[in-house]
Write a protein that binds this DNA or RNA. Structure first.
Lengths: 109, 109
DNA sequence: TTATTGTATCGCAATATTACGATGGAAAAT
DNA sequence: ATTTTCCATCGTAATATTGCGATACAATAA
């Protein structure tokens, strides 16, 4: 065993988990912060800003891309990584839906 | 290698990643939904609601507890699991801080 | 053409996660 | 006192993640 039983859960639960999982590593948080902070998308310098090798950063970018949170477009020699606005908002909404559904605990704890 | 280089990132980045990581599995999302939906905290029946064994559920609960999102109090023979309201709100705030910091992308992508 | 530059990907090693059955232990019920 | 119930933890196996160097590859520069 060891494989996650994703198929046993709802699509919504899996989607939310997918977004959260992508956010579940400090390097990916740092990358997203960098992408967010730049109004320009010249993002080839992410590697220089992080204490990780180029191949590791590239892998984290891949995971963020697969989760949908960012997109990468080839621009000549370089690649331009950007937040995917639509998915970004969707992720925020999904997460807040869960958080907001908690209305406090009655007479316990 | 293989160990996460947490120490190379800021406390804030690590905290946010910790919350997100805890949310990064559909079973844990499902558990949180159950805890949220019940106004009462009689939570020993989580196992029955999920397609996972008792030991696996217990482990997921432990992870949620370690991330701070829930707390468990022994109540006689049973254990009462609840959302930790304070941490719950802190997690939501941290996540939204990141999401809200994105103001759209200028002339690219 | 031949470098050079910017990225992606492969292959590997270390570590972490996921899942389960078995076992243990504490409180409640019999 | 014995059994039952509820839950945590141990041990183990399967799989996934993290990280890096080496390499490949495409576009630009020389």
């Amino acid at each position: 065993m060891g494989a996650t039983k994703s198929s046993e859960f709802s699509a919504k639960e899996n989607l939310l988990a997918k977004y959260a999982k992508a956010l579940g590593h400090p390097a990916r948080i740092a990358i997203l912060k960098l992408l967010v902070s730049k109004s320009t998308c010249q993002c080839g310098d992410i590697v220089e800003e992080l204490p990780l090798s180029q191949s590791t950063v590239s892998q984290h970018l891949k995971e963020l891309k697969e989760a949908g949170l960012i997109k990468g477009e080839i621009e000549g020699a370089k690649v331009c990584y950007c937040i995917d606005e639509k998915e970004w908002k969707k992720a925020q909404k999904s997460l807040n839906q869960l958080f907001d559904s908690y209305k406090g605990c009655n007479e316990c704890c």
